[in-house]
Design a protein around this nucleic acid. Structure first.
Length: 124
RNA sequence: UUGGAAGGGUGGAGGAUCGCUUCCGGCGCAAGCCGGGGGAGGAAAGUCCGAACUCCGCAGGGCGCGAUGCCGCGUAACUUCCGCUCAUGGCGGGGGAUACACGCGGGAGGAGGGCUGGAAGGCCUUUCGACGGACAGUGCCACAGAAAAUUAGACCGCCAUCAGCUUCGGCCGGUGGUAAGGGUGAAAAGGUGGGGUAAGAGCCCACCGCUCCAAGAGUAAUCGCGGAGGCACGGAAAACCCCAUCGGGUGCAAGGCCAAAUAGGAAACCGAGGAGUUGCCCGCUUCGCGUCCCCGCUCAACGGGGCAGGUUUCGGGUAUUGGCUGCUUAGACAAAUGAUCCUCUCCGCCCGCAAGGGUGCAGACAAAAUUCGGCUUACAGCCCUUCCAAAAUC
RNA sequence: GCGCGUGUAGCUCAAUUGGAUAGAGUGACGGCCUCCGAAGCCGCAGGUUGUGGGUUCAACUCCCGCCACGCGCA
């Protein structure tokens, strides 16, 4: 991707955390923040790296349908705002029970609040 | 018409933008980009059954283990043929095979209700229905009760007789007969009525029930006109068990292929036997053995110990073992099928006489993980069928 | 995905071959004791035996279906 091309809001495989060690490293070495319906763990990467996202939905949250919905909402929030980061990070989001009855707008607001408080957003 | 219960069906439609996944075509050295197509369910769920498929095993026999148990019909993936389609393992149709998974129907049987009858019983209806065997054997039936399962059982009672007492009404005791009555119990060893008798008793008779034979009906389970027998056979096998039939184990984390790496630890056993074979035994198959080292003795045999080897168990390992395949016209492996918005209808609630307006995430349950069939459980709203209740009308 | 196992008082466990009031410890509550508390002693309550059916005269126990929880696998 060059600088002149228009911004694209994709979410390919290289943007996902897959290995268990990546999750563990991010949660142990990175920083942590609780905000509304989610818990954010992040670890700063070198500037040339691509940001990656991992989502944890535990069995405490509910059945498979509920967990899948929480996962998709959080992923969509990341996808929409992946270019608002001021530096690349590995980000692990843990869904909390509060997400179940919320719509996308509320989840998105919580996500942005968390990013601002973490100091990861670009100046708008 | 309204409400409730049970069963069955259905489980929104169209579009825009941004994404995910997979296949096909094109472009590109490549990363990738462009165009087109496919992308959750009736239960995908629980993992409760059965089957396909997989690998291991399979001369055979005995013991054991598990499942199933009335009758008839039917059904899958699978296989085969034909047609359609640019093409495919696709779609449509026909034939064949398997299921002691299951579905439908029928029949014994149990329970409730109604009718009839003096009663026993009979008939109708609703519902349940894991439904071989209780003379093959072993055991169980608590408490209560005199007696609880095989010559059943005399507590009260009834009857006879003997002795005693008597206020002549009877009373008490012994012996014997008696299962009609009382009482206990879930159950008391056919029932009701009559005869009979000292009192009673299928002791005898009628009806009912039961057992056996049996015309006839039905594919069959089974029903049974009619006849015979005084009656033999309590319950429970969802106690052990017996009989019949079926079942080898294993489960896609099965299994196969490729590449990389040296991490490959510990314990026990094996010395002529080990391993495999369904849990065990026989037997069988296969690999091996008649000595590699040390000690006890000079050697051998025998005994003890050990190296290599083999087997088993434990441990480590998902933060190094990884990838492909199995695998699919949905086909993942931190696990796709989404987000935002518009329009239309469905339905609920609120406002309104009405037209209409507002509001609610199309609003329930619940998301594939080798495939297929079934069972069970969950389910908003709407539609259909049956039943029940209430109101209104005839 | 596949295969196993367990549910009894608040907690930890019993209950014989099916037999009647489901028992024990601990905890809770009340009382005694003490100036007060602890310990001790006495008393009392607490159970749809996870749940729904079935078999049986009778079910914690036997059988079947659900629910919840836990364990194992390469």
């Amino acid at each position: 991707m060059t600088e002149s091309a228009p911004l694209r809001f994709t979410f390919g495989r290289e943007q996902r955390l897959k290995q268990a060690r990546d999750f563990s490293r991010t949660r142990q070495e990175g920083r942590r923040l609780v905000c509304g319906c989610l818990i954010a763990n992040w670890r700063v990467l070198p500037p040339e790296a691509t940001a990656r996202l991992g989502i944890i939905t535990t069995k405490k949250l509910g059945n498979a349908v509920v967990r899948a919905r929480a996962r998709r909402l959080l992923r969509e929030a990341f996808r929409r705002h992946q270019h608002d980061f001021n530096q690349p990070v590995d980000l692990v989001l843990v869904a909390q029970r509060g997400i179940l009855e919320k719509g996308f707008a509320t989840v998105e607001r919580d996500f942005m609040t968390a990013l601002r408080r973490a100091g990861l957003t670009k100046a708008v």
